[in-house]
Design a protein around this nucleic acid. Structure first.
Lengths: 225, 225
DNA sequence: AAGAAAACATGACAATTATCATATGATAAA
DNA sequence: TTTATCATATGATAATTGTCATGTTTTCTT
C-alpha cells in the first residue's frame, strides 16, 4: 500500500501541514478504497468517523429537501478532504456524499485526525483556513441563490465547473453531470435546467456531444445578466 | 475599563478556551466601543484587522449583489464574535456588517488572536467548531433558498428569530427589523415580503404593533408548506 | 407643529419558473 | 434483439414572484 509521506495528493490539502512522523502514523491506520460511480459514500444522519482524502475522482455533497429534491451544496474533487466538517462538529453528517465518477480515496479514522488537531497547531490552523474558505464560498452561493435568475446561476455553474475542474482534450467539461445534477446545483426543476441549456445551445454559448457539454463562449456566458 | 477575565460574555464564545494569562493580555490591548444603530462596522472589501466581541446588541452580515439588493447572510448577536472568518482567511471582508440596534463591542486586534490561535490548540479547536457550525447553517440556508417558496422562507425566518433571539415582555420579537431587512434575509423583493407578512396577519399567524411583530401561532407558521 | 423623507401597503401587470403531459433518444436488462 | 427504464427534450399551462405605480402611514428634521 502506498504511503502518505510520499503521496503527492497531500500537497493540495491540510495534511501537508503534518509532520513526517504524524504522516507515518496516519499511513499505518488509513485504508484505501475504490468507490464506484454513483455509490453513496455517506448519507445525511450517518456518523462520519473519519475523513476521506480524495486521490482521484469527484463527488457531490447534497442535502434532501422535503419536496424530494436533492440540493447539491458542494463538489469535492481530487486533492480535497471529505467529511471534515462533521468530524469537527462531532455531529452526524448533514449532507450526503455521492461519487460522480469512479473514485480513489483514503480513509483516515477520526481518532488520528483529532489527535493531530489537538497537537499540531499548524495543521489545525490549516483546517481552519480551509473551513473559512468553504464558508466564504457558501455565503456567495446564498447570495446567488437569493438574487440571481436560473439562467444566470446555470451560466455561472458552467463557468465554475470549467474553471475549477477543467476540460477534456476535446474541450468538453471534464466533470460529467446529468441534467438533473445541473438542476440540483442551480436549485431549479430538471425541465427548467434542460430548457436553459437548450437555449444556451441555440445562442451558440455551448455545444453538446451526447451529454457532454463544451463551452463555446466563456465570455458570452459571463455576460449573461 | 472592564476586564476580559471577568467578563461573562466570553462564556458564550471561543474566548472561554483562553487561559487566564491570555485573557489578561487581551484585556490590555482590547478597545471598547459603542456603536449606534445603523452604523456600518465594516464593509465588503475592508481589511478586518481584529475581531469584535459583541457584548450587547445585534448586527447583520450582508453582501451586495449586482442588482443593488443587500442579501443578509447571517445575524450576529450578543455573546458572539464578529469578523473571525476574514481574519483567519487573511483576506479583506466578503461581507458588510451593520448594527441593527445600539451595540456594545470590544475590539481585539488581529495580532493577539493570531498568537493565541498558534499557541492554544483548545482555543483554535473551539474557533474551528464555531466555523463548522456556521458552515452547516450556511448549507441549510442554501437548501432553503433553492427549494422553498418565499412564503416558507419568511415563515422560517420568523421562527428562527423568535427561537434564537427571543421576545420582548409584550411578546413581540426582540429583534426589530424593517420589512426591507426581512426581504433581504429571505431573498425577495421588499413588496413581496410585505405582502406575505400581510397575509400571515390576515391568517392570524402573526399580529403587528407598529412595525413590531408578534407571533400568534408558532405551530401555524411551522405548518406552512 | 409643519413639511420632508422614509417605510409600509396594495393593486395591476409582466416576467420567471414550476408542473404536467407527452415524445424521443439512450442505455440497460431480459 | 426486444423490451423496459431512464434521461433528455419541448409544449402548454399554472403558480410564483418581481416590477411599477400610487397611496398611506410613520418617522425624522427643521
Amino acid at each position: 500500500m502506498s504511503k502518505c509521506e510520499q503521496c503527492i495528493i497531500k500537497q493540495f490539502n491540510s495534511l501537508k501541514s503534518l509532520t513526517k512522523e504524524e504522516l507515518v502514523r496516519i499511513s499505518n491506520c488509513k485504508t484505501s478504497h475504490i468507490i464506484k460511480k454513483g455509490t453513496v459514500i455517506f448519507e445525511e444522519g450517518d456518523a462520519v468517523n473519519g475523513v476521506y482524502c480524495v486521490k482521484d475522482g469527484i463527488c457531490k455533497l447534497s442535502k434532501l429537501s422535503e419536496n424530494g429534491k436533492d440540493q447539491i451544496v458542494k463538489m469535492v474533487v481530487k486533492g480535497q478532504l471529505l467529511g471534515q466538517r462533521s468530524l469537527i462538529s462531532n455531529e452526524s453528517s448533514n449532507l450526503q456524499a455521492t461519487a460522480l465518477n469512479d473514485m480513489e480515496v483514503c480513509f483516515i479514522p477520526k481518532s488520528e485526525i483529532m489527535a493531530d488537531l489537538q497537537k499540531n497547531p499548524k495543521f489545525s490552523f490549516d483546517v481552519l483556513q480551509d473551513m473559512a474558505h468553504d464558508l466564504k464560498e457558501a455565503d456567495d452561493i446564498i447570495v446567488n441563490m437569493a438574487q440571481k435568475s436560473v439562467r444566470q446561476r446555470l451560466a455561472e455553474t458552467l463557468i465554475y465547473i470549467h474553471d475549477s475542474f477543467g476540460v477534456n482534450p476535446d474541450g468538453t467539461l471534464s466533470v460529467l453531470l446529468s441534467r438533473e445534477d445541473f438542476a440540483n446545483i442551480v436549485g431549479t426543476a430538471t425541465e427548467s435546467a434542460i430548457r436553459v441549456l437548450s437555449q444556451f445551445k441555440k445562442e451558440g454559448l455551448i455545444s453538446t456531444i451526447g451529454k457532454q457539454i463544451k463551452i463555446e463562449s466563456l465570455e458570452g456566458l459571463k455576460r449573461i445578466e
